[in-house]
Amino acid sequence: MAPLPSGAQTRQPIAVIGAGHIGGTVGALWVKAGHPVMFASRNPAELKPLVEQLGPLARAGTVAQAIRYADVIFLAVPYKALPQIGADNKADLKDKVVLDACNAVAGRDGDMAQQALATGVGVATQGYLPGTHVVRAFNTLGYHVLEAEANRPAPRLAIPLAGDDANAVRIAQDLVRDAGFDPVLVGGLDTARRFQQRGDPGYGQQATATELKRKLGLAP
Rank of each mutant, 00 (worst) to 15 (best):
Q173M: 09
G202P: 14
G27L: 07
Q65N: 03
F138P: 01
P220K: 15
Q206D: 13
Y203V: 15
L47Y: 01
D178Y: 00
L161C: 11
G127T: 08
R42P: 13
L93P: 11
F195E: 08
P56R: 01
T119K: 04
A154L: 11
L129P: 05
L175Y: 04
A118S: 06
L185H: 01
P155Y: 06
G7D: 07
V26A: 09
D111Q: 13
L141G: 03
G120A: 11
Y69G: 01
W30H: 08
G86Y: 10
L54T: 06
N103S: 05
V123W: 09
L212T: 02
A116T: 09
G187S: 05
L185I: 03
G188M: 07
G61D: 08
M112L: 09
Q196E: 15
V98C: 05
G131Q: 10
A168D: 15
T210P: 12
I22V: 08
Q196V: 11
Q196N: 10
F138L: 04
L4N: 07
V121K: 00
A40S: 05
V123T: 09
D100C: 04
A219L: 12
V97C: 11
T210S: 04
R214I: 13
L129D: 06
Q206M: 12
I159F: 02
A60L: 10
A154H: 07
V145G: 09
A76L: 10
Q53V: 14
A168L: 13
A162M: 13
A124G: 07
A116L: 01
K80R: 08
K213M: 13
D200N: 14
Y203D: 15
D109Y: 03
D88W: 09
L189E: 02
T208M: 02
L146S: 00
L161G: 08
T140F: 06
A162P: 14
L47W: 02
N139L: 02
A150N: 02
D178M: 01
A76R: 01
G217S: 10
L185C: 03
I171G: 10
T210C: 10
G24Q: 06
A60G: 06
G142D: 09
R136V: 12
D174F: 15
I14R: 02
P3M: 09
G217A: 09
G199S: 01
P201I: 13
Q205G: 14
L216C: 12
G18D: 06
V123M: 11
